[in-house]
Design a protein around this nucleic acid. Structure first.
Lengths: 151, 151
DNA sequence: CCTCGTTGGTTGCAATTCGAAACCAATCAC
DNA sequence: GTGATTGGTTTCGAATTGCAACCAACGAGG
């Protein structure tokens, strides 16, 4: 079947803004935590529930939504567990979002000295700060960029 | 006054995880859109309301929350408008989060060819893709990093 | 001085969403 | 075949949202 079927989202909060569309898909209290845990190895319903602490009926809904929107794929597990949810390419592409949220949280949501988990590479080295840079390599911020509206 | 007063948030969803703490502060449907608009020049209650389309009572609540948590500062406006909300350093530091969300949205929440606003630097050049890189400069993803839990 | 428009809200209420807990069917391990 | 585990569903009360109406303060115009 060659039909390019699309996600079942019709009424966007702000149809031209990619930020708003992204938040329409993952901008609730739990979706990004589910993605976080998927990136950290969670696969099963029970495992997501245990890690996030989300209510079970809400988790059912979020897994379904994320699957319907193409961020997770649901499939029968090879062995014991009966099904599993794995990240799609789109889901994996949220990695920079999770990392920047994490880095912001580290800096602004903890008291100095308060312990928190950290993200490390495969050698155990902490991941450096992620920041937008311009074509010339200079750091960008909200003062040196602007949104160009589509006409 | 030297008292280092802290934000009024007591019960975190997941106290050790910076991602979860960040989402406790801005992980709802509207907060990041308010931040987005603040970065895009919005200052007044009316302007935020107009740009986001959020219900007025909810906007009141979000502006208060974001102010209480130190992402916005509320102050009397110099001229006509009676007060204005401006980003604090913490609020401005969400820039990489907004940009990565935006870039994810551009890639995964639009049909090919569907128009959307874009982020450009002051010369009008589109902002390059933002992605975590390791100490050695190599691109990182969820497969080449892990969360080290704090004991 | 009176009125009108604007700003920055508040209030009330209905509808939606969330969360806790109980329940349940299908394996699976023994 | 018995009990534990997995992956849910159902129910119901509580919290959050959204809409719409209302309102006080201020400024501009006449």
């Amino acid at each position: 079947m060659t039909t390019a079927e699309r996600v079942p989202e019709l009424d966007w909060t702000d149809p031209h803004c990619p930020v708003a569309r992204a938040l329409d898909l993952v901008g609730d209290r739990w979706s990004l935590l589910v993605i976080r845990d998927a990136m950290d190895g969670a696969r099963s319903f029970t495992e997501f529930q245990r890690r996030t602490g989300i209510a079970r009926n809400i988790l059912t809904d979020r897994l379904r939504r994320l699957t319907a929107h193409g961020l997770l794929a649901r499939r029968a597990a090879p062995s014991g567990r009966r099904q599993e949810y794995v990240l799609t390419d789109a889901g994996r592409d949220l990695f920079p979002v999770i990392v920047t949220l994490r880095q912001w949280g580290e800096r602004h949501a903890f008291e100095p000295g308060e312990p928190h988990s950290i993200l490390v590479d495969k050698d155990g080295v902490p991941v450096p700060e992620v920041t937008p840079v311009g074509a010339d390599g200079g750091v960008l911020d909200s003062g040196t960029t602007r949104v160009r509206k589509v006409e």
